[in-house]
Design a protein around this nucleic acid. Structure first.
Lengths: 156, 156
DNA sequence: CCATCATAGACAACATGGTTGTCGTTCGGT
DNA sequence: ACCGAACGACAACCATGTTGTCTATGATGG
């Protein structure tokens, strides 16, 4: 084996960074500046039913305080709406705004374009085996991230 | 195409995180707590001739101030030595200590073990195609990171 | 020889994205 | 009616980066 394990890690990180950097740059070019991956991720979770900061924190495996900071950014940019929950005075209900959905759609489109350009570079079958290999290696951890019935962690 | 571009990005990130998390945990178990990837990277650069904070910053594409903070951590933990440069009173010469080399060796071994366990999971040929595909996708960006004759950027 | 410019590093302020801990308020189950 | 659990707010802190400013030193060219 000529390649080292550390190089493999750098390759994985490099490929991820290439995707994320291009999508962030693409969104910025479309008038959505400074949209970080965590913002997109949080909006998806909110759209998917995480309607409170505590719930969002559980889904993203971060503390509710960290989730609240992310939410504050999204609210400030108009991507998420935050209003009192009539049914529970402790909660502030969260909703993704039309603008937020715009960003999510634009991000998805950019990611998909990027994936298609990958397919052109390494071939459709090459991409399929790449994804299959990665799926085997990461096991179900990606699935776990997207599982709606999130397993609550020890945070808070 | 059933899979989305965003999922591909998550897979790449997940695989990277799996490697890094296991190596960090392994190093901690061997008595090197809190060694972050950036620490290993910085030590490699220092061992490779980046003997000042400014030079290290250039090689890692971060500001010299950020490099100096990383160096401060490494010095405090005894992984790097820092002493006045007799030939240039502005500089503080950097050297990786024997303890630092121990950490680097341990990290390499853990990364290589992990890569071998990947080979068991997806086969040696599967790993080879994975690496080839990633190399194609990232282009020369990884090479650029390791290039000794680093292209100075606009930082500072 | 010396004026000027570039560089090294120290220090401060700040941003981002996390963490813990504490607290008041509200909800819900016994 | 109570008490525990949960929500959100607030503060303090950490890690890792950024700028910007400053001093000391080195290098270069007239």
């Amino acid at each position: 084996m000529s390649r080292s394990g550390a190089e493999l890690a750098l390759l994985l990180l490099g490929a991820y960074r290439r995707m994320v950097d291009e999508v962030v740059a693409g969104l910025a070019a479309q008038g959505y500046p400074d949209v970080r991956p965590v913002h997109d991720f949080a909006m998806r979770a909110i759209a998917d039913g995480a309607d409170s900061a505590s719930e969002l924190g559980r889904r993203m495996s971060v503390s509710k305080q960290a989730a609240a900071k992310t939410i504050a950014v999204l609210v400030e940019r108009g991507y998420v709406d935050r209003e009192a929950d009539p049914a529970d005075a402790r909660r502030k209900r969260l909703d993704v705004t039309p603008l937020g959905f715009e960003v999510m759609r634009a991000g998805e489109a950019l990611f998909d374009e990027l994936r298609e350009s990958f397919a052109r570079e390494i071939g459709a079958s090459g991409l399929a085996s790449l994804e299959a290999a990665l799926q085997t290696l990461v096991g179900d951890s990606v699935v776990r991230i997207e599982t709606p019935g999130w397993v609550a962690q020890e945070l808070d």
